[in-house]
Nucleic acid binder design. Sequence first.
DNA 1: AATGAATGAGAGTTCATTCAT
DNA 2: AATGAATGAACTCTCATTCAT
Lengths: 220, 220, 220, 220
Amino acid sequence: MGRPKTNEREDIRSLVLEKAKALFLKEGYASITIRKIARAIGYTPATIYLYFQSKAEILYELHNEGFRLLYEYKMKIGEAGTSGAMERLRNGGKVYIDFALENPDYYELMFNMPEPRNFMNMHRKGAAEDYAMRSYEFLRQSVQRCKDEGYFKDVDVDTAAFTFWSVVHGMVALIIRKRVPYPQAPTRQLAHEAIEFFGRLMTMERFVSDTRNSLKVIEG
Amino acid sequence: MGRPKTNEREDIRSLVLEKAKALFLKEGYASITIRKIARAIGYTPATIYLYFQSKAEILYELHNEGFRLLYEYKMKIGEAGTSGAMERLRNGGKVYIDFALENPDYYELMFNMPEPRNFMNMHRKGAAEDYAMRSYEFLRQSVQRCKDEGYFKDVDVDTAAFTFWSVVHGMVALIIRKRVPYPQAPTRQLAHEAIEFFGRLMTMERFVSDTRNSLKVIEG
Amino acid sequence: MGRPKTNEREDIRSLVLEKAKALFLKEGYASITIRKIARAIGYTPATIYLYFQSKAEILYELHNEGFRLLYEYKMKIGEAGTSGAMERLRNGGKVYIDFALENPDYYELMFNMPEPRNFMNMHRKGAAEDYAMRSYEFLRQSVQRCKDEGYFKDVDVDTAAFTFWSVVHGMVALIIRKRVPYPQAPTRQLAHEAIEFFGRLMTMERFVSDTRNSLKVIEG
Amino acid sequence: MGRPKTNEREDIRSLVLEKAKALFLKEGYASITIRKIARAIGYTPATIYLYFQSKAEILYELHNEGFRLLYEYKMKIGEAGTSGAMERLRNGGKVYIDFALENPDYYELMFNMPEPRNFMNMHRKGAAEDYAMRSYEFLRQSVQRCKDEGYFKDVDVDTAAFTFWSVVHGMVALIIRKRVPYPQAPTRQLAHEAIEFFGRLMTMERFVSDTRNSLKVIEG
DNA sequence: AATGAATGAGAGTTCATTCAT
DNA sequence: AATGAATGAACTCTCATTCAT
């Protein structure tokens, strides 16, 4: 019957994304359904299809939005004039942790969704708009700078980046998903400390010419 | 359909779990359905409800089974008479990675299921049977031994264990979920190398009396 | 909630087929929907799926049922001890017309459904149960007998069978679909007469040694 | 979307039909949807409803268009100065077959749509615009000429026309709908041959004064 | 004359679950 | 102990259509 809601703004899109995120947060990935979203925003399912081509598009949009937000977090460091490359890397890690623990719902969406790159094909707005990619590039640059300053002598940049990313991702994933089985659940505080510790380890490495051999000497 | 093989013992429970696991390993998480399990074991869906309260319970059992399997993987190291504590820790990490990459579906079930502890309330058979707990205990012991040998002087055992776990978990999570955005997807080989690298870092740390201060000196 | 209707008999299958046919008859092919059938028989859509694998199966079953019925019609001639092959063929045509005009709904289903052989793959109960095939075989035999008696000298059996079938099929299709644009709609009576006329033509042909050439002589 | 090409003339009607036809010929009957047409002509679905009452009306127009096309095919024979009436009739049959097999989708629309006369009530532009009627008239005239030349002595003109139409319609219907159950699917070639054969039969008939009786003599 | 916004109705299908027997 | 029969609630998605503007 076409009862046009008094929706002066066209941002039903935003409305949908908002509610979809909320739903995900409250009831988990599996219960993001078009119908539920529709009900939540007071429209019919058909209406949603006026603004999104498919459910996948909604999910991808949400996922991308998450990476956009992460990117913003990261930019803050870029601006802050930090002295050393390693310090910058360490800060990056902390910011990542902050982002994840402050936006656990987004984080879940970003890393728990099954294969979001499937829909990306439909969306290919150019890599420029893919914030996942850009976030990774940011990390990679940080690592490269470290190498330039003498760190990570024995590993290539992607491996080192992957390792560093793994540490922070692993932490927040365990924390968010509550998989740490000991009672005093790890907090952001702990994660930050772990990064500090990790950073210290990496710093030492700079002063050893070739870790592969020198360690054998030490151990021997 | 008739009543099929008269399993004198009432361990239809085992049968269900067995087939559920098989299904799951063959076709992935998403296709575990009560009907399929029922068909596979030659009973009707209704029968399954005589042995399990809900599908969730089956999933929880499977989830626990995953941890049991992980535990088995880990036991192999325990048996192998390895000399040093750090070597043992490093091996533990590699075994963890192997387990995850060889059983990605289990790993998903173990770490991606929403809040498995929900069903645990119903089941609480005592921590003894909770293999998740036991696996963590194993890791914790490894770390403790490292401390006993002079490593990890400045961090408490849980923090260090958490950090180490984060690294490996982060790696396999990124690999399994395919979230690494650079083309040459990281492999088990890479993950192992990362562990080696990580191990080297940790080994160095032993020879510095107090990383917190000494580093400042070095950096200064 | 499993309210078991007092359905002592298991023939919900029949019920479904019956109502599906009725629906088709009343509202046309496009409105055979699972939901409508379900509503009509007082069950939920899900129930229908306990008895049929898919909508396609229902349609195929209906289609096959039609051919089964046609086959029965045809069998009557087989029993009736008719003297000549041509007479038998002519009678076959009339019976076909009778069947179609007495069961127009079935006929529509049999010849208006899009590509029923698609589902047959799933159903392959062996050609023996495919009544479409058997009906055609019946026609083919009739034609062969005609050839044995000297008719259809210049055409092979399949071509002749196809031609004869075309005549009757064309007639009933035009009649049932009401595509004949002149006012006094053709009736079964007319169709029968046409068959008679057609039969006379064919009978004549027997007495001409080679129609291909002799006609040129005549015409010339 | 803006208002696109300002077609000064209001024949958006033509535009719609044109595109509908194109769509239809390219993708088949089932994919004529108002939306697709609208998209194709650069207007919104709503606009279409300013020019057509319903989708059915569009289909009817298309259906009529089919008959117009068939009429054109037939006109070609009219122009070709063919000698005899029977030859003309035979040619008519072949042309009909050609039309149907070259435009199977049109043919479906023309003869498979449920009751196109339903919409005709709304439209009654007089028989003059009804090409179905005119096509039939054409056939009828051909048959009448045959009678004038001594054929079809024992049947009235409508019956003979109906019979002849049935043959060709039956053939193409069976071919298009793929209902011929033997493997070597009949082709246009075969259909043409069948017409030839049929024509030979009819030609013979001319030389028998009264088929009804003479045949009894022959058979006796 | 044209549209943007929206809908209601519906499609086929699948699932976990229940309950009388 | 086991099942046959059934359901309700979902699912994603598509369509023809309407109406205020």
